[in-house]
Design a protein around this nucleic acid. Structure first.
Lengths: 244, 244
DNA sequence: CGTCGATTTGACTAAGATCAATTTAGGTGG
DNA sequence: CCACCTAAATTGATCTTAGTCAAATCGACG
């Protein structure tokens, strides 16, 4: 799908710790067992206990929880370089489900292989822990948005964060990025209805801040968006860990 | 404050993996450097880079983020047996602040001591990772509540979860528990206003489901609350990990 | 007794949800 | 190539939940 994405994880972790050739080699070998996931077909059911982690190499996946009344909350989106199901390895019951938003490719890594790789390259473990912590910080920021930002700021913040994440793995730049999400995905992520998402996007467009059309997010006034959203990317911290 | 709370962490982890005498000893030795935190005085400022973790032995603390406009979102509450600032050890910038809700006591553990303890008792590391994963699952569930539950269900779910957590460390039981939170705390946690929290508690009381008065949460109709909230404690999983 | 914070209640407003259509764009079969 | 089907996007009208503004009550504490 995109030639440079197999290296997305390398690129992401390298932005954080300088990994040696040997460590990058271990990382590459982990990503041998490739699997394809077709858009719309769920990956893991809520309540199952998986024994593998997936490293997404290309595509988009969302992780979500559904409630008894059928409403769903999307917790996070995963793009190239992101992990799927890391937490589920530790908790006996997987606490949410995964839906590929578009056809996606991921490397399947067994818990055993992962532990072996950590033994071989301990700094890899640190780097992955950093990535996991960063993911958790994003969930926290997501909670802040849903709890304390109005629809416009919430949308702006969400799309800015996504832009930063994608730029880190070489997809898109400061001006915008390609984004296959539907307004329903946005609604389920932001705790809004699809209808309100539509009106929110219209407002942002009419204010000259950004457009989202034909699968493309385009920032027209990035600074204006940042101000509206109160976006402070400190929580995406790319400057390295304390333990290194 | 409460005689049995110093053992809260032991009790919590033991509910999950059977720890040996030796492992429990390592755990106890970690908790020697006690510190007191006075109610209302913040522990760590957003943006600082701490080099220690705290293990709360008694009291209540909340972790939160404040936004530029002054609104705040409480991400989680910590009670006896919970960690403070574990994630901040990995991300260079601490991504939120801590406020002791009441006078609290915590053991300060340096990153070095923690790593040493893991070397001595590797199963302790697994158990603590489990606890960290569980904390993250709680944040996810919190996000689901704020995003997709109305005020009544959100409140009911929150108070039920808190009850389960407290029962695990021996504070309170299935009927209720002592809770020092103000309605403002609840509002900042649930993404509501304090006024609406007040009305929400009144509705729950009038429906005969529960009361919250004079620092005491009392379940009157636990099953009714569980149904209203759609509370499924699977994400609090106490049945053990895959890696053990 | 007076002050301050927390709780409680009422009246009103507003952000976002719900209900109901219509339009648009891809894909499919004939 | 075109009629048809479906999912997504768009818009209007109306309703509901929760927020805002204002004020009274209550309790702890100096």
């Amino acid at each position: 799908m995109d030639a440079n994405t197999p290296a997305a994880l390398n690129r992401k972790l390298s932005a954080f710790v300088a990994l040696s050739e040997a460590e990058l080699g271990v990382l590459d070998r982990l990503q041998h067992r490739r699997r394809r996931f077709a858009a719309g077909h769920d990956l893991v059911q809520q309540g199952q206990a998986p024994k593998s982690v997936y490293l997404l190499t290309s595509g988009w996946v969302c992780s979500y929880k559904v409630q008894a009344d059928g409403t769903r909350q999307i917790v996070d989106f995963q793009v190239a370089g992101d992990f799927l199901g890391l937490r589920s390895l530790l908790l006996r019951t997987s606490d949410h489900s995964f839906e590929p938003v578009v056809d996606s490719y991921a490397a399947e890594v067994s818990a055993g292989d992962l532990l072996a790789a950590f033994g071989e390259a301990p700094r890899l473990a640190i780097a992955m822990l950093w990535a996991a912590s960063r993911d958790e910080a994003m969930v926290v920021e997501h909670l802040v948005g849903v709890g304390r930002r109005d629809a416009d700021a919430r949308m702006a913040h969400f799309l800015l964060e996504l832009g930063s994440r994608l730029a880190l793995v070489g997809l898109g730049d400061g001006d915008g990025y390609d984004c296959p999400l539907t307004q329903t995905h946005l609604a389920d992520a932001l705790g809004l209805t699809a209808i309100h998402v539509n009106r929110t996007l219209r407002r942002l467009r009419e204010r000259g801040l950004m457009t989202f059309r034909d699968g493309r997010v385009q920032f027209e006034d990035r600074q204006g968006l940042v101000t509206l959203a109160g976006f402070d990317p400190a929580y995406l911290d790319q400057t390295g860990p304390l333990l290194a």
